[in-house]
Design a protein around this nucleic acid. Structure first.
Lengths: 173, 173
DNA sequence: CCCGTTCCCATGAGATTCCATGACACCCCG
DNA sequence: CGGGGTGTCATGGAATCTCATGGGAACGGG
């Protein structure tokens, strides 16, 4: 199971809003697309979730799991509507082209703050893997946020405790 | 099954009440119309459900599922009547033309508040995908509602909790 | 014959496809 | 150990196509 998004990558965004998907991520997207036939894997890009500074990307398989969970919730409840809105309506299916790129959809550009000017000036995006999904950031926003949050990670810990102590205790160790 | 309505699209409504169906949605409508033969897919437009500010659109296939469920209900009960009225009587079969457009039926226009004046002034509609169906709104109404509801979404959440925590807890994670 | 539709064509903007290039990394063989 | 050679990747540019949208002609029913 190397089928996981891992690591960080910086990619240029050109004037037409095209970005290369990092090759290792492509491998995972291909594995996670049941309709993949050798080229052009698809995936789902989520631009909802106000408050966050990035867009989140799900493989087809992973999104189906999420959809199934949402469908199991009672229809019409505010909770379900909230999830539908943020993960279905505010999302978009995208296809990786034969050169390994996608065009950033307008809504995603908007969320990241990639306007026409930024594209002209040669914008850069950061791809950050988070196991089952990956995130796309504007590079500068990513670096600023990382600096802040890396500190916050340690707020949970007693002085001197190890990060791994946060893991659930589990018989298999 | 990438056959799902997903994302938001804005389209102009011209003086003759014509609107383009977003191309990605067209693909889904085609797939969901058993009689589709290369052009002019049909679908069902629902303008019942008073209180809602949009009309809802079902593929033929999806509507058949809904019909089957209604038929399984005991005839004559108020519950069944309510569903029949709102999803069958207050609905209409429409056909996408060769340019990818439909004419907004008068009943739908009425529900959305698209009168002759609004059409003259160049009205805009928003299409919002919700997996099995999609909704058509007047753009301004959509944006206003989205803004309101997006805030409401976070009322369910403890401070700092993630939207995904709304999912039912489930052994398979 | 008139009004409301439906059909057909035109057009520009935006999206997709295709080709080209340069930078690396890796491998095989001398 | 070195040196090509080969392949993958990221990236740029240009040709081509699709889509949304507007205008007008044809049509049909009352």
């Amino acid at each position: 199971m190397s089928e996981a998004f891992r690591g960080e990558f910086n990619q240029k965004v050109d004037g037409k809003a095209r970005v290369s998907i990092p090759a290792p991520f492509r491998r995972v997207l291909e594995a996670g697309d049941p309709a993949f036939d050798g080229s052009r894997p698809k995936f789902v890009l989520i631009y909802g979730r106000p408050g966050s500074d990035f867009v989140e990307c799900y493989t087809i398989a992973q999104m189906k799991l999420l959809e199934a969970k949402i469908r199991r919730m009672p229809p019409g409840t505010p909770q379900r509507k909230a999830l539908e809105r943020n993960f279905i309506t505010l999302s978009q299916l995208v296809e990786v082209d034969d050169d390994g790129r996608i065009v950033m959809p307008p809504k995603a550009r908007e969320k990241l703050g990639l306007d026409a000017d930024a594209l002209k000036d040669g914008a850069e995006a950061t791809f950050a893997g988070t196991l089952d999904t990956f995130q796309i950031w504007r590079r500068d926003a990513y670096e600023a946020t990382l600096a802040t949050e890396a500190d916050a990670d340690f707020d949970f810990l007693e002085d001197g405790a190890d990060l791994l102590s946060l893991l659930p205790t589990d018989p298999e160790g």
